[in-house]
Amino acid sequence: MATIHERLQNKPYSEYAYATRPSKITLFWRRCLIKQFYMFFKLNFKIMMMVVKGHS
């Protein structure tokens, strides 16, 4: 039996068929430890700054 992913993708003209999907390289970067360590600090810093600036 086809997986649910395959069933959704093989359904032309359904709403699901129009959804964007990540490419293989995107999936790779999402799990790349070097990039994700960098993102961890970058996003934490960004969120901290938002909290500090968000109230007086």
Binding site: L8, Y16, Y18, A19, T20, P22
Partner: peptide, 15 residues
């Protein structure tokens, strides 16, 4: 909308 539909489709969730 694009972001959310993409995540649902990637995880095989219909909506």
């Amino acid at each position: 909308k694009v972001f959310t539909e993409s995540v649902l489709a990637e995880y095989g969730i219909r909506w």
